[in-house]
Amino acid sequence: MTDQSSERNSKPVVITRPEKQAHALKVRLDAFGIANSVLPMFDIGPLPQASDYAVLDAALRRIDELSLVIFVSPNAIDAWFERLAYLGITRPLHLGLAGMGAASRIALIEHGVDPQITPLIFPRNPNKTDSETLLDELDLAPLAGREVLIVRGDSGRDFLADRLRAAGVQVNQAAAYQRIAPPFDAAMQGRLQTAIDADSAWVVTSSELLPRLLEWCRRLGGEALVAKMQQQLLFVPHIRIFEKAKELGFQQLIQTASGDENLALAIQSHYERTN
């Protein structure tokens, strides 16, 4: 564990996830003695209307006809299992499940999925866990003409669905949750200003947050605060987030492997090298 003098000399870490999703990473950073706080830049909630679940519910009621379910995130996994329980549907144990990274694998196991029984498919490269690398892991020939369900939030990329359809796969993309932006009220403005003034290190696990972060800075302190934010250190667990951050002018970026354990270890390792 890092001693107190090391903690004082480290940049405080700001976790931009919702409180619930940030907890596991916060606990790991606490164990390393790394000062950290949670500044939720989005929340996860149910879809606004019951009718918004129509595509997902229809697919779940035909779950025995599915060949594979692909989850874009741990949040998609949580929402999927909640919906199964709500509908009273039992998951076929041999139905293949796929995800993008270590956090999704952990989420599936926490929901009782046994990897010895249920085929699990994930990118093998922990430093590049996205739709492109998952596609490389899929055996597309047996999926041709079969039905695959992609469980996602209320927005996202269509890359994977488009590529699967091009290979002759029948694809349903179903929303299972929504991301909700918090109000940029006085309390949030104060927390953001404090974090930037402390020259923090930021954990950003979604590329969608980056434009919002800069817009909040612009509203709070104009282009000067935007420039100050662009100079702060970002830890990002996906190449897509890394590339988006570079595009938006962020100067200090460290890409880590996916999953809370890998994120925490990367932060600890960086601090040990720089303190």
Rank of each mutant, 00 (worst) to 15 (best):
E82R: 14
L263T: 05
S155Q: 15
A174Y: 09
V72E: 03
A141S: 01
L87G: 08
P46I: 06
L160Y: 07
E261I: 04
A54M: 11
Q173D: 04
A264K: 00
S258H: 12
L47G: 11
T90M: 06
P142E: 08
W80E: 08
G88P: 14
Q252F: 05
A227R: 00
L84K: 09
V14F: 14
H111W: 12
V14D: 07
G145Y: 03
L138I: 03
S6P: 06
Q116M: 06
H111G: 03
F71G: 01
I267T: 02
V13L: 10
V13A: 02
P115Y: 13
A186C: 12
V13D: 08
Q232E: 07
R146K: 02
P142A: 04
H111I: 01
I70N: 01
H23D: 07
A186W: 13
A50G: 05
M1S: 12
L149Y: 03
D197H: 15
A24M: 06
G101I: 02
G33L: 06
D158V: 13
A24D: 15
K11V: 02
V14I: 15
I117M: 09
G222Q: 07
A176D: 10
S10K: 08
V151Y: 08
F42Q: 01
A144V: 01
T194A: 07
H23L: 15
R91N: 10
W202L: 01
P92Q: 07
L253W: 15
A35T: 10
G99Y: 02
E208A: 10
A102S: 08
Y177K: 08
A175S: 10
G33R: 02
I121N: 12
P18I: 09
F235M: 05
S155Y: 14
Q178Y: 05
D78V: 02
P12L: 05
I196C: 00
G156V: 02
D3Y: 05
R163H: 14
G156E: 06
F71Y: 04
L164Q: 03
F159S: 09
S258C: 10
Q231H: 13
N275T: 14
Q21A: 13
A161N: 01
S73Y: 11
V14E: 03
A201Q: 11
K20F: 10
S104V: 04
